[in-house]
């Protein structure tokens, strides 16, 4: 099971084992990771599950596509090249060790 680290805006780390096939958002929610709202349930409609993919991991997750970027533009915190909507990141085996940071707020 891929191990994933979420780093909150205040630096607090949560390390969890992800189920393969889940989205990063589903993993965060199933493990009670604070700071991801996901109000639309993963349909890429609300832009409240924003994360920053740490370092080279962006090579594995890939960047946001055009639609996702359009939605991210409305998120309240800074958008960078590492920004993703976590509902659009599907967990695969080669993401073991993935680290993502959470923004200060989602709304």
């Amino acid at each position: 099971m891929p191990r994933i680290t979420f780093i909150a805006a205040d630096g607090a780390e949560t390390v969890v084992d992800a189920g393969e096939g889940d989205s990063l958002m589903q993993v965060a929610r199933a493990h009670n990771v604070d700071g991801i709202l996901a109000e639309c349930g993963g349909e890429m409609m609300c832009s409240t599950c924003h994360v920053y993919v740490e370092g080279d991991w962006l090579d594995r997750t890939g960047p946001a596509d055009e639609d996702e970027r359009d939605m991210l533009d409305f998120a309240p915190c800074e958008i960078t090249d590492a920004s993703r909507l976590s509902c659009q990141v599907k967990i695969t085996d080669d993401m073991d060790g993935l680290v993502v940071r959470l923004p200060e707020r989602q709304v």
């Binding site: 889940d22 929610r29 199933a30 493990h31 009670n32 349930g41 993963g42």
Partner: peptide, 8 residues
């Protein structure tokens, strides 16, 4: 079902 839960 588990994926629908708003929180665990």
């Amino acid at each position: 079902d588990a994926r629908l839960l708003l929180r665990p």
